[in-house]
Structure formats: C-alpha cells, structure tokens
Simulated scan of single mutants.
Amino acid sequence: MHQAIVNLVGGHAPICISFDQGQDATIYDLKERITTLTKVNRVNQSISTMGGQLLTDEAFMFNQQQEGPTIFNMSLRLLGGKGGFGSMLRAQGGRMNAQKTTNFEACRDLQGRRIRTVNEAKKLQDELDALPERERERREKTQKKIEEGLKGVEQKKYRFDDTQFLEDREQMVDNVKSAVGSLLKKQQSKQQKKKVVTAVSFDMFDDEEDSEEEDNSDEQEVSEEEEVKSSNKRKRNDDDNNDTKSKKKTTNKKRK
C-alpha cells in the first residue's frame, strides 16, 4: 500500500490518503480523493511537490521503487491573470539588457565600500608614488636649462672685405675731427677778442681818473691865489670845490 500526505492551505492539518500497492495512481485520482474529503472542487486544486514543481493530472504519484509516504502540497487556483504584464516585463528586460553600462562605481565591494571610493584611493596612491619621479625630472630639466644658459650662444665669425666702406669710414672720421678742430679754434679766437676789449675798457677808465687828478691840482692852485686876494671868496670857492669833488667821485664810481 502506498500513502500520500497532502499539506492543505489555510492552516488546516495535512491529510493522509492510501492507495493499493498495484494501483497506478495519478494526480487526477489524488484530486478526486481530496475533493471527497475536503469538498474542494478538483478544478480549483493545484498539486505540487515539496520542491515546488507543479504536477499535471496525468502525472503518476508514486514510484514503484519508492518506500514510505510521498508528500505533496496543495494550493488553490486564483482568478484572473497577468494581463500582458509578463510580456511587458520581458520587453523591459530586453531594453535594460540593450542599455548595458560599464560604470559600476556606485556599487559596493565585499567590504561594503563604494567602488568609487576605492578607485579614488588607488589614484591618490599612484599620484603619491609618482611624485618623487616627477620631482626628479623637474630638477633635471631645470639643471639642463641652467647649463645651456651658461654655455651661451656661439658667435659666428664673419670676414669683412669691403675696402670702399673702410675708406669712406676713415674719411668720415677725418672730416669730423677737422670740423671739431675748426670749431674749437673759433671759440678760442672769440675768447681772445673778449679779453682784448675788456683790457682796453680798463685803460680808458684809468686815463679819465688821471685827468681828473690834474684838474683838481689846478683848481687847488687857483684857490690858493684867490685866498690871498680875499678870504670871503676863498670860503665860497672851497665850498664850490668840495661840491664839485663829491659829484665827480660819484660819477667815477658809477663809471667803474
């Protein structure tokens, strides 16, 4: 005898159904026995194995070599359907597969870190490792520039064979020297003439002073004779002479 244990829905206890040893029982027979026991219509029953595989009515329940009871799960069919939702999901899945991306930086690794953070840490470490090498290259470039600057530019030597240019150059230099010499001579002659004129002017002033002294001596003689004649006239003449002397001195000073 074969036994089938069926787990019912709704929290009901499972039921045990027995079949004869030689009988080839099918799922259809199992559903008929369940209908008689639970009053659930065979059409609304859905039988599946413990692994979740759905069984049809024509499938056999037992294996001839199987020992012990066979366990089944019973569920009820639901009204309605997917209504094209499955095809929509399949189409959406196709579109999602077409738009494949290679950017997985927002994902996390096994340690729970963002892949973006891990990649940035690697880049930073690479930059730090390459920093001494870049610094060495920069120093080498700077040293090379300094050495090239110290060497300087090699001056090319040119041979000048234009004799006419050299002759013209010498002639121009001679003309400049002669012009400068003549100008200096003219300036010296002008200075000598100025010295002569000043010397002549000083001599003229000296002659005028001598003539004034002679006139003064003559007047003094006349005044002495007049003093002999009369004292009154002498006094007057002395006053006049004093006035004239003072005037002449002022004029001489002005001339000087």
Rank of each mutant, 00 (worst) to 15 (best):
E209H: 12
D210G: 00
Q155E: 01
I146L: 11
I15Q: 10
L110M: 13
D24N: 05
A199P: 00
F104M: 04
K145L: 03
N216V: 11
F85Q: 14
K31C: 02
K245C: 05
G80D: 00
S18A: 11
D218G: 08
Q187I: 15
K144Q: 13
I5C: 10
Q125L: 09
V200K: 01
E208C: 13
E221C: 04
K144T: 09
L78K: 06
K229Q: 04
T70H: 13
L110G: 11
R42Y: 05
Q111A: 12
N103K: 03
G84Q: 04
V6L: 01
V222G: 06
E148N: 09
S230F: 07
K249P: 02
V176E: 13
S182F: 12
M74F: 02
G83R: 11
G11R: 02
V173K: 09
M88W: 15
G51H: 06
V200F: 00
Q66K: 00
V176F: 07
K145A: 15
T56R: 14
E137P: 03
K233G: 02
P132A: 09
D238T: 01
S48C: 07
S46Y: 02
E137N: 02
D20R: 09
T101F: 10
K233P: 02
C16W: 10
D238R: 05
A179K: 14
N241G: 07
E214P: 05
L131S: 03
K194Y: 12
S87T: 14
D206P: 00
F165E: 06
D24L: 04
R236F: 08
E219S: 04
